[in-house]
């Protein structure tokens, strides 16, 4: 044992278990998926090298662009729907009135439910003949209760249920961030006679800038992975109206057992995800924060 400062610092060995473990189940699979994309494998036996044939099949896949398109649409709809809603409610719920505190407890209820629980609940609610959709669909202009079965509406219905699940979480972020805004800013504004709306736009919104960015990043990156709920609620249907890219990959791989082609789609998905992350990072200046932190 030595008393020198350097020796008292934890060696790389402290990080080794985490690194090895993550390498085995996080990094190795990324390389393996690239390898599998050049093979034919139906889950039986061993993968057989087939070169570029899976990649060539990409050009023939009529559902590929549908999948990418639906993924992007879901992303945009989720962002446009969830952000203003969560922002408004979060700011409102940050108020100190007792009623708001009680009500915000209710807002957080969906956080207690798993995706599977939410999905089976909404499938029951939206049953066109025996659910709420049958009785109340007419008030929403859908007298036959055809929500999940309508190629035009299904994706928006899914986006709604996703919002139902995740708005509480984003509300939570905005609520706690709003509570951090120094009161003095508002007191000064009140002295100047600024209205509530004015205060919202000139104080609250700018002060929440970082939270808005963070919440948006989560929605954007997260929507690439909304998959379980769609699998449970529509299985990508009707037709392929809700078949987002991850689901397309799952169906090819684990329903059609074309694991090789599914791996091609997985590579596309990883590439898209990384590209989106890079764009978001550039736009929000997140990389500067990272380098700050690395300097710490």
């Amino acid at each position: 044992m030595t008393t020198s400062k350097a020796a008292a610092r934890p060696g790389i060995i402290w990080a080794a278990p985490a690194v090895l473990f993550f390498a085995a189940f996080g990094i190795l699979p990324v390389f393996a998926v690239v390898y599998l994309s050049f093979t034919k494998w139906n889950g039986l036996g061993d993968p057989v090298w087939t070169g570029l044939s899976n990649w060539a099949a990409l050009a023939d896949d009529s559902e590929l662009f549908n999948g990418i398109g639906k993924t992007l649409l879901l992303t945009v709809v989720s962002w446009v729907g969830q952000t203003p809603l969560a922002l408004l409610i979060g700011v409102w719920a940050a108020g100190t009135q007792r009623s708001r505190a009680v009500l915000s407890t209710l807002f957080f209820l969906p956080l207690l439910l798993s995706t599977a629980a939410i999905s089976v609940t909404f499938v029951s609610l939206l049953d066109p003949n025996f659910g709420l959709a049958a009785d109340y669909g007419k008030y929403l202009g859908v007298p036959d209760g055809n929500f999940l079965g309508s190629p035009e509406k299904a994706l928006y219905v899914i986006a709604f249920v996703i919002a139902w699940q995740f708005v509480p979480f984003h509300t939570l972020l905005y609520q706690s961030a709003t509570r951090q805004i120094p009161v003095s800013l508002y007191e000064a504004a009140q002295l100047d006679g600024a209205t509530g709306v004015r205060q919202f736009f000139s104080i609250t919104l700018p002060q929440l800038r970082n939270t808005i960015i963070a919440s948006s990043v989560l929605i954007l990156v997260g929507s690439l992975t909304y998959f379980e709920m769609i699998l449970l609620m529509t299985n990508g249907g009707p037709g392929t109206a809700t078949r987002v890219l991850p689901l397309h990959m799952y169906i090819k791989g684990f329903v059609g057992f074309d694991m090789g082609y599914a791996s091609v789609l997985a590579v596309v998905l990883v590439t898209l995800g990384t590209a989106l992350s890079v764009v978001v990072v550039r736009l929000t200046g997140y990389h500067r924060m990272t380098s700050d932190r690395e300097g710490a």
Binding site: F22, T225, G253, F254, A266, L269, V270, G273
Partner: peptide
């Protein structure tokens, strides 16, 4: 946090990158 070496730093970067890998993309190899 406590080891300033380059190798540890790059490990941290690997984990940062790992944040972006969606689990379902690698479900076949898993």
């Amino acid at each position: 946090v406590r080891n300033p070496s380059r190798s540890v730093r790059s490990m941290f970067n690997v984990f940062l990158l790992g944040l972006a890998v969606p689990a379902q993309a690698v479900i076949v190899p898993i």
